[in-house]
Design a protein around this nucleic acid. Structure first.
Length: 255
DNA sequence: ATGTCACCTGGTAGGTGA
């Protein structure tokens, strides 16, 4: 089976591309970030017409997440239980026996900002909740836009980015903390093309120069790891005429 | 090269967030 994550940066703008991508790749489940839609505006009907069942959680202008699958997800959870949050960043559901957690981690803006403090608090809450989720659902995948480049090799210019947002020690420590729960970065289980990123700034001709970061991730629980067969970034949608700044990340699991 | 994009408010531009 195939699971994927994609930060679409506005589902309104990207819906035609999303429908094309779903048709071409036929994932068993896909999580979206930055839908930027209130719940009443979610394009449920258009997706249903193409055969996709959705659950979603959005807000005006910013953030917003969704989980798409051929079957409707069960035991759906929106945001982190017990963590009061005005921002729509998490959607979880069970599909084909796998607990899927789709997350849009806070950007953090700059290490000396209030938004960075919020990012750290949010990640603390996510970590604590995930520990419980893993106990309840040993077959679990956490995927989404983490807004963290875990290592220097995930950054096109690690010297320039040292200590900058996405690359601070505190953020990387949190990422390692998630691995400490027994999760594995699927992408790093395979040989990958050098300079593979999942996000390229719209500015600076960054995509043309392949100046990006790997900040979108798929983490698998230990129980799922034996089924892992492949993990790739799909750069093709980033070449679209009007692309998201992020590319989808895909994992393939065996039976 | 801070060289873009998407969204908002309240407008025919400017601010915010990424």
């Amino acid at each position: 089976m195939k699971l994927a994550t994609w930060n679409v940066n506005s589902l309104t703008v990207r819906l035609p591309q999303l429908l094309d991508w779903l048709q071409a790749h036929q994932p068993d489940a896909l999580v979206l970030q930055e839908t930027k839609l209130t719940d009443d505006k979610f394009p449920q009907a258009e997706l249903a017409a193409a055969g996709w069942r959705s659950v979603w959680f959005g807000q005006k202008t910013y953030n917003g997440v969704a989980l798409l699958a051929r079957e409707e997800a069960s035991d759906v959870v929106r945001n982190i239980p017990g963590f009061a949050d005005e921002q729509a960043r998490v959607i979880a559901g069970t599909v084909a026996g796998i607990r899927i957690i789709g997350a849009y981690f806070p950007n953090g803006q700059a290490p000396d900002s209030d938004k960075f403090v919020y990012k750290l608090r949010w990640m603390d809450a996510l970590h604590a909740w995930l520990r419980a989720e893993l106990t309840a659902h040993p077959q679990l995948v956490l995927m989404g836009d983490f807004n963290i480049a875990p290592e220097d090799r995930d950054v096109f210019d690690p010297v320039a980015w040292a200590g900058q947002i996405h690359c601070t020690d505190a953020e990387r420590e949190h990422f390692r903390g998630l691995l400490g729960l027994g999760l594995t970065d699927a992408f790093r289980q395979f040989e990958q093309p050098p300079r593979t990123w999942s996000w390229w700034d719209y500015r600076n001709l960054a995509f043309r120069k392949n100046q990006g970061l790997r900040i979108d991730h798929i983490l698998l629980s230990q129980a799922l790891l034996p089924r892992l067969q492949a993990c790739q970034v799909d750069k093709a949608p980033r070449r679209n005429e009007r692309p998201s700044d992020h590319a989808p990340v895909v994992v393939e699991l065996g039976a």
